Amino acid sequence: MAELWQELQVSYRNGSISKKDTVLYKKWRKALKSLSEDPQYPGLRAHEISSLSARYGMKVWQSYLENNNSEARRMFWVYGPNRRDITIIELDPHSESRKNGAYNRVELSKFAKIMYC
């Protein structure tokens, strides 16, 4: 996740970013800012995904990057590894239905602390 963030950031800053990636970068940057200030900020709609928490042995949270969009993305995160840290472990299109096992298809990255700049 850190590598993706850095690639988007560099591309955005040097003007070589695509239109689609610009949208992703701006929405992700805004979500990270809100998350860093208040993980329970209402616009993020943060909530625990219990099936992922059970699978990975730690509370896994999901927050919105966007909503009301057929390609709406969600950000999955955990607290840690250190006190007051939040680690982004996945960006994924919204899993449409829990009934169909959509969260079973979500693969979370390893702890790779992302730094928001």
Rank of each mutant, 00 (worst) to 15 (best):
G15H: 04
L65G: 04
S109F: 06
R73N: 09
K19Q: 05
H47S: 15
E107C: 07
Q40W: 15
K110I: 12
Y41L: 09
Q9I: 02
K33F: 02
K99S: 15
G43D: 14
S70T: 10
E96V: 14
A2W: 05
V106R: 04
S63I: 10
A72E: 08
Y56N: 01
V78C: 13
V10L: 04
K27E: 11
K110R: 09
S63T: 13
V10K: 01
P81W: 03
C117N: 15
R84S: 13
N100P: 00
S34W: 13
I17P: 06
S63M: 07
L65A: 06
K99Q: 14
S18H: 01
E90Y: 00
S18W: 00
L24E: 05
A31M: 03
E71Y: 08
M75L: 15
Y64H: 13
A46I: 09
R98V: 15
Q62G: 08
L8G: 04
G101C: 07
G43L: 14
Y64S: 13
R74M: 11
K19F: 01
P93C: 01
S18C: 02
N67C: 01
V60G: 02
G15P: 00
S36V: 07
Y116N: 10
N104I: 02
W61I: 02
M75Y: 06
E48C: 12
K19D: 04
L91I: 14
T22Q: 05
L8P: 07
S11M: 07
E3F: 12
R74K: 10
L44G: 06
Y103S: 05
I49Y: 11
R84Y: 14
R74Q: 08
G57A: 05
Y12N: 05
V23M: 02
G57K: 05
A72K: 08
I49R: 06
S97V: 08
K33Q: 14
T87A: 09
M75D: 05
M1C: 03
P42L: 11
E7R: 10
S36K: 09
K26P: 00
A2E: 14
K27F: 02
P42G: 09
A72Y: 06
N14Y: 03
Y116Q: 10
R29N: 04
I86R: 10
V23W: 03
D92M: 11
K110D: 10
C117G: 15
I88T: 09
A112N: 15
